[in-house]
Design a binder for these strands. Sequence first.
RNA 1: GCGCUUGUAGCUCAGUUGGAUAGAGCGCAGCCCUGCGGAGGCUGAGGCCGUGGGUUCGAGUCCCGCCAAGCGCGCCA
Length: 565
Amino acid sequence: MGRLHGVQGMSIQKHIERIVIEALLEAQRDGALPTVEPPDPRVERPHNPEHGDFACALPLRLARPMRLSPIAIAERIVERVKTGEGVARVWAVPPGFVNFALDSAWLTARVETILDAGPSYGNVDLGSGRRVQVEFVSVNPTGPLHVGHARGAVFGSALANVLAAAGYDVQKEYYVNDAGNQIDAFGRSILARYAQSYGRDVPLPEDGYRGGYVLELAGDLKAEEGDRFLSMDEAEAAAQLGSLGVRRMIDLIEADMEEIRVVYDEWFSERSLYDNGQYDRTVAMLRNGGHLKERDGATWFASSALGDNEDRVLVRRSGSPTYLAADAAYHMNKFVERGFDRVIDVWGADHQGQVPSMKAVAKALGIDEERLVLLVYQLVTLKRGGEVVRLAKRSGDIVTLRELVDEVGADACRFFFLSRSPESQMEFDVDLAKEQSAENPVYYVQYAHARIAGILRLACERGIDFRGGDVSRLGHEAELALIRKMLQLPELVEQMADALEPHHLPHYSVELAAAFQRFYEQCRVVSSLPEDLDLSMARLRLVDAARTTLARCLDLMSMTAPEQM
RNA sequence: GCGCUUGUAGCUCAGUUGGAUAGAGCGCAGCCCUGCGGAGGCUGAGGCCGUGGGUUCGAGUCCCGCCAAGCGCGCCA
């Protein structure tokens, strides 16, 4: 483990933070600097390579409390920083930065640590095995997924990948709303189409689903179940058809998800909460806590007392629960029954208005605020032929997720959706996506991997066994730049897991691929000259490590890493 | 009207808890193949970071006003 990050299991960045603090404390002991509480050193990567591999602006922040010039503080720290263990040089720069340059011998040795780590390179232990649930998409099982859902699906699954890489025990969940008004309307819609297929003049319900898939569904059910629903009580027939329809829709959604490489660990039924009494217990708990009151025949949740702008209906006059009541029971299940340490709900912006009431519910149920994270991503507006397409599910005019994946491909889809931060309001131009599918950063990254695979194949064909390659022979600028870039992956995983921001992954992948391409352009790897053999072998080690790193990035994005294109 | 989110290159978007000269892809103008995959490399043009204030040694980043966009404001979910 210690070899992975260099120094005693910690990253080089953490190591540098520590030696800065140590130098500062030493200067304070010497009386060279006044004794003030040292803030977080915040070692970061400078944009400009002239400023070294890492930089620290601590002296600038210490200037005021210490009543000294920043550069003087920087110099006194620099005098006491212990180099070695990867750090070759430390220097102070006006107005008061402390810069660090890594040792090139240490850098080249990282190639071996990457190869040792193999497919697990990039893993960090931030989570210590704590159990985290990521729940995402969870749209009503009353229709197929459309392009808008792809964003949530890609984001949620990539976030889960990142958290797993960061050492969390992650579960991906889909909450199936298999009860309530929407399901009721869905059942009545199927019944109408079903009856119509027998020539009955039955209109589609006012609040019904108009999509063509309902027609197909009714046809399928007719073929398999026959006409037995015609003689049944209407409500009963709608309920049964709805239930059958939902089951099929869940299968369809599951299959659609697989198209974009999303595989859930759990499909959680809302209905189960009513069947096993957890719903009743949760309502009783809220009541005992004094959070409920009766008004206009309905039961209200006093959420305004807990930070919400107004109270919400929890149980309708009819006795049926609102989504909020179900959500309360559902989250009790997550935290109490299943004992997750942390739960992340990924919601579309059309649900952002529910955030305050959900938080109020969590508070009322005694769930620690930090354990429940609600992430909201902005909806995708779809453009086609320059026109904005409405994404209303009931209108029936939708572009399904499956159509999109068939046209653009799962890899391009994932990369595209993942490279935007969730809060960006993106316009998805279907025509442009198809048009640019050949001229796309997706293929740039994958091409780099294929090219690497080609080089390794060639080495194999030439019979070069590079296992004993000596990486200390490396030292070309392009080689070091590539190693530096590869070294960032564990840091990135840590950062992404911490901030819950997987969208950095595609950007990093492009940078990594570019670093490789520049290396490839400048450094001949497989040479036919006998005197180059040692260097070739060292470079093949590097190329193999680059393959490892690039493949891991693609893996974290659930994208394929092609051997050839 | 109120709330949440967002305004960065011609287009689509990054910009790590406030740090040094604001980046990438596409598009545009050029350059580079006697060797490993040209789906490549290099160079250039292109920016009042929506706008006006404020905080700070320092603001694309934090705070406030304004303008614009998306979403929400049901005993639907």
